[in-house]
Design a protein around this nucleic acid. Structure first.
Lengths: 261, 261
DNA sequence: GATCATAAAATCGTCGACGATTTGAAGAAA
DNA sequence: TTTCTTCAAATCGTCGACGATTTTATGATC
């Protein structure tokens, strides 16, 4: 019944992961359906991704408690590994770790939201400027392919899929900048933005966003740094405004405020 | 003999911290004299700071192994807490954590160095621009006070103290930007830069740097965003160039390459 | 003497356990 | 009924231990 650190077939899956699936229901919003398909892949990353996806898909609203024992039995690991994942989630601002009081899903305030978008504008502006300098013809082709994917996702009208493609677009543009450090920071910020967007109800203006994405690609392909930066900034400002306007205290937000306690 | 999580007087200090000070000397560079004054303060932060300072002061050259058992006995804590600190140090790129092979002090490559400075230019440019918009008269006074501290540190000609004041200056300017997120990112980058500067020998051009700092403050105080950004950029480019030029394979660097293995 | 195989030591990853803190509820007093 | 006290359950922080991996030392072979 011992544990092996590497990627090998382990018996822990039969021990706990399949033990309880969705049996309990203790009144408040808890985390049912977090555990994914339970493949034999890297446990640590699987836990992280499960929580992350749960937050992004509203299954884990802000303020939801994430007790270590629950995660342990859900994923069939000891508290050591759960604890490590929680620490990483805290550093990425997905959860908040209160000393002696456990982890809860982070609840960004309006003030934080503003700062996040401000930081994102600064980073993406710098990165598109670099992208204009360093992009190649093949890069533009790939961006056009991404834009095409966006159109497909829009046609399907399935919000999570659209959000995913939009995220991909921004990350790909940023990758053209060729700076892994700035890219890592931006990845973090985009995650937090996605969290916020998911929180404040999906703003359905996909068509509008897609247009702006096209603008950005066009400016990059023409080597017009000034216009590329301006387009990116306008896009992000618009995104923030749409988010801020689209939350006149909806029903779901009220419930979230309640269990925030 | 149990452990208390809060800040209380504990007997561990007598158990291990005073056990070995600088007794051993196992051939290679190891970490003698890491443990600081051993105050009763927060253990976690103390370990972090000790390693950080050790790296900054060349006592822990890149590639130095940091075995968990050694740190445990040095600070009188169990591996759990040491492990947590190491994970944080890894995230801040101070150490590298190789699976099953332990932690070593990070050794930034020239390529990484370039990217770090590029990222830092992007962040500081954005932040000074914000600083120009948001600064008040009192802020300028405080900056002038910092500049005065720099002059004193220069007069003393004690490199670590000077580096500290220079770091402070940049962080204070960044703080004027009023964006905690960007400030946190920049803090991380400045730490890495300090590490690199310490690695590639202290470049003694303090007077030159100080002049440029004064330029930046002047531009901010006059509300000239364009010039402030330009001055900051020029300052950072100069800093990078001086670093890159000042390492024609010094004796110390060669030794570092050896124990890097 | 150098190279390779083997064994011992050191070190890492994970686990279960213990005490301490917090949380939640039951019961007494106003 | 409301509020406060007391107590039990849940949860967190830290520790020591065990197996697995890596590293180092030892000895055999060419």
């Amino acid at each position: 019944m011992t544990q092996k650190p590497s990627a090998k077939p382990r018996k822990t899956a039969s021990t706990a992961a399949g033990a309880r699936k969705a049996g309990r229901g203790p009144a408040r919003t808890d985390m049912a359906g977090i555990a994914a398909v339970d493949g034999g892949a890297d446990v640590e990353q699987r836990i992280y991704q499960s929580v992350f996806d749960g937050v992004l898909n509203q299954r884990l609203p802000p303020g939801t408690k994430l007790p270590e024992p629950a995660l342990c039995s859900l994923f069939g690991v000891s508290r050591a590994v759960v604890r490590k994942v929680l620490q990483r989630l805290e550093h990425d601002r997905i959860v908040e770790l209160r000393p002696n009081r456990g982890a809860v899903v982070a609840a960004p305030t309006p003030e934080e939201t503003r700062k996040i978008f401000e930081a994102r504008r600064a980073l993406e502006a710098a990165l598109v400027e670099l992208a204009v300098q360093r992009h190649s013809g093949k890069d533009i082709e790939e961006l056009h392919a991404l834009l095409h994917q966006e159109e497909e996702a829009m046609a399907n009208a399935y919000q999570p899929a659209w959000a995913q493609t939009a995220r991909n677009f921004h990350l790909r543009v940023a990758a053209l900048g060729g700076n892994p450090i700035l890219l890592a920071y931006l990845t973090e910020l985009i995650s937090r933005c996605s969290l916020i967007v998911a929180l404040y109800e999906p703003a359905g203006n996909a068509a509008c966003e897609h247009e702006e994405h096209c603008d950005i690609v066009d400016a990059i392909s023409k080597g017009d740094a000034k216009r590329a930066v301006a387009a990116m900034n306008a896009h992000l400002v618009g995104l923030e405004e749409r988010i801020c306007l689209e939350r006149p205290s909806s029903v779901k937000t009220l419930a979230q405020m309640l269990n925030l306690a």
